[in-house]
Simulated assay, not measured.
Amino acid sequence: MLVLTDPALETAEEGPVTIEDWVDETYGSGRAVLGDRLRPAGEAKTVRRRKGEVIVSDGPFAEAHELIGGFDVLECDSLDEAVEVASRHPMAAAGIIQLHPAWPLDL
Rank of each mutant, 00 (worst) to 15 (best):
K51R: 13
V3Y: 00
P90G: 07
G70E: 04
I55H: 06
R88V: 07
V83G: 06
R88I: 09
D72W: 08
G52P: 05
L2A: 10
V33K: 00
V85E: 00
S78T: 05
T26V: 15
P60I: 11
L79N: 15
H65M: 12
D77R: 12
R48K: 09
L38Y: 13
A62R: 04
L105S: 11
V85F: 03
T5C: 06
R37V: 10
P90M: 03
L105A: 14
V83Y: 12
T46F: 05
L67Y: 07
I68W: 08
L105V: 15
G70V: 06
A102S: 07
A86H: 06
W22E: 07
I68A: 08
D80K: 10
L67A: 08
R49T: 15
W103L: 11
V56E: 02
C76E: 14
P40V: 00
I96L: 08
A32D: 04
D58S: 09
V17R: 12
M91Q: 14
S29R: 07
G15F: 04
H65S: 14
E75H: 12
F61Q: 00
H100F: 12
E66H: 12
G52D: 01
T11S: 13
M91F: 13
V56F: 06
P7F: 01
K51F: 14
E14C: 01
P101M: 04
V56Y: 02
I68V: 15
D36Q: 12
E14W: 06
P101S: 02
G30W: 05
C76Y: 10
V3W: 00
D24K: 12
P60A: 10
A12R: 03
L99N: 12
P7H: 06
S57H: 01
D6T: 01
R88M: 10
D6C: 00
D80F: 04
E75V: 15
A12T: 02
V33A: 02
G15W: 05
E10M: 09
L2Y: 10
A93N: 14
S29L: 04
T18M: 05
V73N: 02
A94K: 07
G70H: 01
G95E: 10
P90D: 03
A92W: 06
D6Q: 05
R49S: 13
P40E: 00
D80S: 14
L67W: 07
L99K: 09
L34P: 08
S78Y: 03
T18P: 10
E13N: 11
R39M: 14
L4T: 14
T11F: 11
A94E: 02
R49A: 13
W103Q: 12
P101G: 04
S87N: 08
